[in-house]
Design a protein around this nucleic acid. Sequence first.
DNA 1: CTTTTTTTGTGATTTTAATAACTTAAATTT
DNA 2: AAATTTAAGTTATTAAAATCACAAAAAAAG
Lengths: 203, 203
Amino acid sequence: MHSKHEILRLFRYRICLIGLKNIGFEYVYSYYLGEEVGVSAEQIRKDLSKFGIKGKKKSGYHIEQLIKDIEGVTGKDEPQNVILVGMGNVGLAIANNYDFVKHNINVIAGFDINPIKLKKKYKIPVFPTSKMEEFIKNNNVFTAIISVPALSAQEVCDQLISYGIKGILNFAPRNLKTPENIFVNNINLCSELSSVIYLARSS
Amino acid sequence: MHSKHEILRLFRYRICLIGLKNIGFEYVYSYYLGEEVGVSAEQIRKDLSKFGIKGKKKSGYHIEQLIKDIEGVTGKDEPQNVILVGMGNVGLAIANNYDFVKHNINVIAGFDINPIKLKKKYKIPVFPTSKMEEFIKNNNVFTAIISVPALSAQEVCDQLISYGIKGILNFAPRNLKTPENIFVNNINLCSELSSVIYLARSS
DNA sequence: CTTTTTTTGTGATTTTAATAACTTAAATTT
DNA sequence: AAATTTAAGTTATTAAAATCACAAAAAAAG
């Protein structure tokens, strides 16, 4: 089937294409898109062709059509609902991010165990963790973002899965143990930054 | 030489090992560490051996020694100074992150073009962008985190490089164009989340 | 002291991803 | 209208990453 990397690139193409469209471009060459996204032109053509997406020889790709085609693969045409667990600083950054809405992703609710945080200024409604199960089931949510402290991450993860969550974006600095059929994307800010520091020094 | 992936894994091992040490473990088997980090035991042994780090047959790895050995490779024994540009919500999450300090990374200052933000509650000193050049040069900083809006990201990036920055962790949803010798690690929250949504649905 | 067990370390194999090279079709030029 | 140019689409090649398989060493058991 398709690898995680391919899918991720497809989304990066899409985000970039939306940008190009917004500044008035109508057509784009694989070469130019590659420059913008930071991958090779061949890679782009190969990715698109693998998903059955066609351009036009000599003219390149019609941007609006290409976005639609990518969305046909990724299903981005209808809005996607996501919940957020853990309303600390990372949670706040996610909750108040304008970018998601622009790309048809709706973070529809946040949850936190600490009721004090419920009073902060978030752009989304925030509920106590005890309401999570009910909310997930009532709203047909399949994706969650975890931004709780490391110590409670596994517990929250297990709960989410038992409530029906199938995909998790995890910011807690801990590897989550999950069944095979659950997809987890870990973003460990600390190791990401560490590797930059290392590679910056050795360059 | 060593790939970005290898280095990143090394940092993930290290973070996990620190956790194991803190809860009282003294020795660890590649198998167990693999379970924790989420990679195979062979992968771990191969990575470590590639960096010349040795365990002990039948006993596994002495955790404290292993952390030191990894730090010998990655240079984590002395604190690493980093600056942050863009004090929005993502910037706040970075500035107030406890995890970095725990891993010997110091985000020593933040910068923002908007003076209003300078008054918010950050755990780090925040200066106007105009002071960036002076600060970078006076403090021997080589790594920066970009969390400005997409539109100003490239401009900020070019400035940072001209002031001597060699490594960038970029949260702006835009691919940065940089010279060969500059290392950039892009984290696009939107495409990361998009891919989770997609893979959650197709599972 | 010998045998067995267990876990590291590494060489071989497989799989996957990236790059390069080439073919084809559409548009432009002559 | 034929020739040329250009960029998509595809096949072939190379490189890299991950997995598998096994040898060697250390510890434990008999």
